[in-house]
Design a protein around this nucleic acid. Sequence first.
DNA 1: TTTAATTTTAAAATCATTGTAATTTACATT
DNA 2: AATGTAAATTACAATGATTTTAAAATTAAA
Lengths: 142, 142
Amino acid sequence: MDAIGILKQLKDKGVRFTPQRQAILEFLLETESHPTADEIYHHVKAKFPGVSLGTIYNTLNMLKEHGHLLELSYGDMSSRFDGNPKNHYHIVCSHCGRVVDYHRPLIDIDQEVMDNSGFKILGHRMEFYGICPECRKGERLN
Amino acid sequence: MDAIGILKQLKDKGVRFTPQRQAILEFLLETESHPTADEIYHHVKAKFPGVSLGTIYNTLNMLKEHGHLLELSYGDMSSRFDGNPKNHYHIVCSHCGRVVDYHRPLIDIDQEVMDNSGFKILGHRMEFYGICPECRKGERLN
DNA sequence: TTTAATTTTAAAATCATTGTAATTTACATT
DNA sequence: AATGTAAATTACAATGATTTTAAAATTAAA
C-alpha cells in the first residue's frame, strides 16, 4: 500500500492526514536506506522548509504504534527507521561499529511466534554481532 | 570461562586488570537479567562505593569491543547488556513498549553467516515486533 | 622500586529524543 | 461554505543516557 492509502486507513482510527505526514511516509516507503530521524528531517525539509524535528519524531512514533514502521536501535548512534523491511539482516562489528547488510531470505518464523505468544507479529529484526575482517586483520582481536 | 579467566586473556591484548572490571564482569556473568548500565553501577557500588558510572561505561565498551558482551538497544530506553545470551529472543510491543521473553532454542545460523561474510560471528540477536494481547484488546489496533 | 601508560573519578559536555506552550490545521458539524 | 474543536505543528526548552575531560590514583613492566 502507498502512503496515501495507509494514511487514509489511519484516519478511521482518529489520526489526522497532514501533508507533513504524507511526505515523511512517502520518503520512508520509497527509500532503500534505513534513515535516521535527522536524515528524514533534512529530506522532508526540501518540500516543507518550516517542518520541525519534533514533527518527524511525532510521526515516526505514530507510525510505529500502528505497526507501519520498524525502529532499529543501536547502542551508540541514532535509531534508524525501516518502512519496508527487505530481504536482509545486519551484521554489526563490535569493534569499529560498522554495519553491513547480510542478504538472505527472511527466516520463516513470525507465524510460529504469533501462535505461541498471542502478539500480532508485524515483523522481526535479526542482527549478528562480530568482528569484521578489517578489524580481525588490523588489530588481531581473535 | 569466568571473569578472571577472561580478564587474564584480555591482558595479553594490553587491557589492564582492575578490580572494578572484575566486579563488573562477574556481575554480568552471574546474572540472569539483562541489566542497564545504571543497574550495574548500583550493584557494583555495593563493593566499590567510589566507583563511577564512567567506569561502568568504559568497561562495557571495552568488553563489547572484545566480543564478550552483547548490547541490546531499544529505541526508548537505556541499553541493556547481556553477558551470556540465553535460549530466548524478545518480543517488543510497538504500542506500549513492553518487552517479553520468547523462549526457544537459538536458531543455528551463526556458522553460515561466518562462512559467507568473513566476520568472526560472536552471536546474534533476534527481536520480534508486534502488538501485545493487551493492546490488541484495549485499543483495537488490528 | 621506578617509570610510563592506563584507569579511575568527578564533573562538565554532548546529542538524540521528548515535553511545553502558543499557533495553526484538519475535519466533522452545522 | 462557515464554524467549533480537538489534534498537529512549530520553536524552543528540558531531559537523560552516554561520552569526554582533566587531574589523581593505580597498574604493568623494566
